[in-house]
Each structure stands twice: as C-alpha cells, then as structure tokens.
C-alpha cells in the first residue's frame, strides 16, 4: 500500500521492459525487414481518388476510419470530464497576479488572429494539411493566452458545454443519418462530385465532420486548460 514506492516500481519496470523490447525490435527489423506486402494505405488512396477530397489523409481519418475518430472524441470527452471531476474537490479561491499592460494589450490584439487561424485550419482540413484536431487545439491555445494574460477572464461553463454537446450529438446523428439513408453508418449521404475536388464545398460529409471534430476538440481543450489553470492558482 505504499503508493510512492509502487508507482516508482511500476514506472521503472515499464521503462525497462520497453527498452528491452525496443532493442529486440531493432534487432529483428535490421535483419529481416518485411517484404512488400500490398499495403492497405495504397488501396485507400486508390479509393480516395474517386471520392473528391483533395487531402487524402483527411479522408482516411474522417471517413474510412471515422468510427475510430468518434472513439477518440469520446476518449477526449471522458478525459476532460475526469479532470473536471478530480479537480472539483478543491476550493475556488483565486490568487491573482496583475499582468503588465504590454501583455494585456498584445494578447487582445493576437486573440482574434489566432482564433481566425484555428478556424481556417478547421475549415480547410479537407483541402490542405490540418483539420479538426489541430484547429481545435489552436483555438484552445488562443483561449489559453487570454486566460493567462487576463486574470479575471473566465470562460462560461454552460456555453462551452453547449458547444460540446452540440458537436458530439451532431457527429453521432450524422453517422446515424448515413445509416438511415445509405444503410451504412457514417455513409457519405451528401452529394459529392469528383469534379468539385479542391473546392471549399466538396467531399460531402467529410468537411462537415471535421468542423464538428474541431468544435468538440476546441471546447474540450479549453475546458481542460481552464480547469487546470484556475484551480492551480489557489494557495
């Protein structure tokens, strides 16, 4: 029941095992690299070329393996919930440090630019590198800047949870609509023509889902950051 010792023992044994495995794997890989198996990735790219999304990685992440993405969203959702739960037992007393005038003004100037960039990354996820996960985190980092520089700034819990709920529910609903319309969960039921490849409105549900993922990730990360920041200020 000695927590400190147990954690140390488990961590070190895990590290040791991992090192051993890494050596074994390097050894095996150097001596016989896998021969050319026809990779799933190539086949996925072949299918994507009929699907009308310029960034093939987005198609794989959001559409072909969209079910995994749904699961990852759920993981993030539960993790954010857990952080809120574990930290909620502390008191809400804030220890305020006044930040300098320069920082306050500059962060006000930077905030809209960063938000704009985050939304750009989210919306153009199917055309250029980036997408919901990255864009969401960029938006959250804009809020982080504001939270650090303005001590009295606080995100409204109800607004964030409304965004969160909206995004999560609409992801599952879009999936179920695919099931009802095309008999295929997460089926691409919005018309997507190959001639529109590279335009902003193309690819059917794929950009829509990535924007939803972005909203969800952005609100979860902002909530995590706010919980950690505000609760760690009390002394």
């Amino acid at each position: 029941m000695n927590l400190k010792r147990d954690v140390a023992v488990q961590t070190y044994s895990g590290l040791g095992l991992s090192a051993l495995l890494a050596i074994t794997i390097l050894n095996i890989m150097l001596h016989n690299m896998p021969q050319s198996v026809k990779r799933a990735g190539e086949k996925l790219l072949e299918i994507n070329s009929q699907d009308g999304v310029a960034n093939a990685v987005t198609t794989v992440v959001v559409y072909f393996r969209g079910f995994d993405t749904l699961g990852e969203i759920a993981v993030l959702f539960i993790a954010s919930l857990g952080i809120g739960l574990v930290l909620s037992s502390h008191s809400e007393h804030h220890h305020k440090v006044e930040s300098s005038f320069i920082l306050k003004t500059a962060s006000k100037l930077l905030f809209p630019i960063i938000i704009l960039f985050g939304i750009y990354v989210m919306v153009y996820g199917h055309l250029s590198p980036g997408g919901g996960f990255q864009g969401g985190v960029i938006v959250a980092s804009a809020f982080l800047l504001l939270l650090i520089s303005h001590q009295d700034f606080e995100l409204s819990h109800s607004v964030i949870s409304a965004f969160e709920t909206l995004a999560g529910v609409s992801y599952v609903i879009i999936g179920l609509m695919g099931l009802w319309i095309l008999d295929n969960f997460l089926g691409n039921f919005i018309p997507h023509d190959i001639s529109q490849m590279g335009m902003l409105v193309s690819g059917g549900i794929i950009p829509l889902i990535y924007i939803i993922v972005g909203i969800k990730v952005g609100s979860e990360m902002s909530m995590i950051v706010q919980n950690l920041l505000k609760r760690s200020d009390n002394e």
Binding site: A162, V169, V172
Partner: peptide, 12 residues
Amino acid sequence: ALPLLFGFAVPI
C-alpha cells in the same frame, strides 16, 4: 452509437 449519443447529450 446510442450510449455514445447519450453520453454526449447529457448536458442537454
């Protein structure tokens, strides 16, 4: 899908 939907919709 239903339990996930429920989980996401709890705030509403």
